[in-house]
Design a protein around this nucleic acid. Structure first.
Lengths: 337, 337
DNA sequence: TTGTAAGCGTTATCAT
DNA sequence: ATGATAACGCTTACAA
């Protein structure tokens, strides 16, 4: 079945379809009378515009794309919790892309291909990018030229607005709190800090804070992993025990911190008596697990990202890039004394 | 900046754009030579098709829409965890809609409006609907006529494929397990069973199982809430204590079960000694909280929904509706003895 | 205030 | 095997 078009409405009303279009789009030159007739017909005939056609001619999609490494990581979920209520207020649709599709081993696809696809297929008027995903400079230039806005959450590129978090301060807070309570041998569990910006910043913060608050930075107290945590968890804990750590700042997030807690329980290590643990992010699970952690206002960051994206679209802001930073907060629970 | 089109490619190669189109779409009548040239140009010029244009003429969107009450509820997240890896294998994009936008108080919007919008704007070739959202029969008829497929997860409508769960059996398993271990006064915490199909089924299962395994159904042992749980949690627990329950099956899910546990702790009620608790779904948090629960293979259900949707699109299956059912499993942890 | 006609990028239907 | 042209539904100069 064919859906109702403006031509159908025009035919029924005995007027031209362009008049219908103008009436629908609020063109001021249309007479109140025809406008009313058109609007009535729209309701009666259950007309809604074909956005493919509209997008084709306007070069706009009325859509904001969200790119995440995965839909369902804890981080993505919290970001979404912030994005959803904000998107609801707007007239934009949401399309989701995960980079996992574009980094599949065995194909030549890369993150850049996803950026290119969204650009060329005119799938979005703005793109919110979450995580360590970087469009290459060439693509970014094309986005700018095409007037498609970019907002990075916890990441950055040559061009685009930013919403990010003071990772260095987060690490500093963790170290200072532990050091103040007499824990001087603080281990750092961190991700791939050569590739992931946030991990680099947390590591830098940790390093400086160790010098400032314990007087000593011992590189043996850092354990980093590049792959899925899985078994590495056990290894990490063993490593810290071996190095006589009496505290750990799990910079990779609460989920890993909780995994470390589970390993400790198996090994009969008491938390916080033997080893204190501080997580990162304050995910829901941190509360359930009683984990002391450094909060990241992830949802608010998602909300702000939508604000920036919508603002950028409506004001077509392509030159002055906005940069919004959020700050950490210490949440004390039961894994520190 | 304009993106590269097939006309640009045609011009560069000195051939007609329709030939380019055919080459790209694998028309067998095209010569190997021109096909190669076209494909080279596609790569060099970084061409990707404008899907708005393609969608316009084909009447297809190459998109599957996902409708959930909210993006970020635990249930949605788990569904997505199943949907994502499956979608990655396909050539479809994902667009998200939450019904919250369409049930906002103060507007006349309804779920049906969302269905209508997706239909008329040709936003999707198939729709996966998650939760107690029902398109009205009229709209459904229009979907069928328009050839837009529907897959319900844990719900149903007059027309559409289904992926669902044996809720009745889930409740039966919970009751039987508790009764077998001597707990005969089992409370049921349930949602709005007049409106939500799954809640109705769980309640039915509970009722029958109480008769079968404890010999007695006492309606005072049922507590249902219609609104956000929040404070109702405390009331529920007090109610069950008052009615001398020695076990509770929290049919509304693990999250609520954990809230009940937290309330119990505040009140000095011992779990499982005083009251045993069984949750529902086996979310991630259930493991962290040590909650005994009835598993629902939510992710697998999401995966199956994508399979059904893609299959329906590609075979244009509009008459024979598929119905896939999944079964519960008891996961024993620490909140039952 | 309204009608006419061109055009967005693609695919489909004729030709050749 | 390829070219020319119409068509999808919409918006928008340009006319009237």
């Amino acid at each position: 079945m064919r859906a109702v078009t403006i031509k159908d409405i025009g035919k029924k009303l005995g007027i031209n379809h362009s008049t219908v279009s103008r009436a629908i789009n609020g063109d001021p030159r249309i007479s109140v009378d025809t406008k009313r007739k058109v609007m009535d017909a729209v309701r009666d005939m259950k007309y809604t515009p074909n956005l493919a056609a509209r997008g084709l001619i306007r070069g706009k999609s009325n859509t904001i794309a969200i790119i995440t490494p995965s839909y369902f990581s804890n981080f993505s979920v919290d970001i979404m919790a912030g994005i959803e209520p904000e998107m609801i207020k707007t007239r934009y649709d949401v399309t989701y892309y995960t980079t996992s599709k574009y980094t599949t081993i065995g194909t030549q696809n890369k993150d850049s291909d996803l950026f290119a696809k969204i650009l060329n297929e005119r799938k979005a008027d703005a793109v919110i990018v979450n995580g360590p995903i970087v469009g290459d400079p060439d693509i970014l230039k094309r986005y700018k030229k095409a007037g498609i806005h970019i907002v990075y959450i916890e990441g950055k590129g040559d061009w685009g607005h930013r919403v990010h978090y003071d990772n260095q301060k987060a690490a500093t807070m963790a170290v200072k709190y532990l050091a103040d309570r007499g824990r001087k041998r603080i281990g750092l569990l961190v991700g791939n800090y050569e590739y992931v910006e946030s991990m680099k910043e947390r590591r830098d913060g940790y390093k400086k804070a160790m010098l400032d608050f314990t007087g000593k930075y011992d590189k043996d107290l850092t354990f980093s992993f590049y792959e899925d945590f899985g078994d590495a968890c056990k290894n990490a804990l063993m490593h810290f025990v071996d190095k006589k750590a009496n505290a750990i700042y799990v910079a990779t997030g609460d989920e890993d911190a909780i995994k470390v807690m589970a390993e400790a329980e198996k090994l009969g290590i008491k938390i916080p008596e033997d080893i204190a643990i501080i997580g990162q992010d304050d995910m829901k699970m941190a509360k359930i697990a009683g984990l002391t952690t450094i909060k990241q206002p992830i949802s608010e960051m998602g909300k702000k990202a939508v604000e920036l994206a919508v603002n950028a679209i409506e004001k077509n802001e392509l030159k002055k890039m906005r940069d919004e930073i959020f700050y950490p907060e210490l949440i004390i629970r039961k894994t520190t004394c």
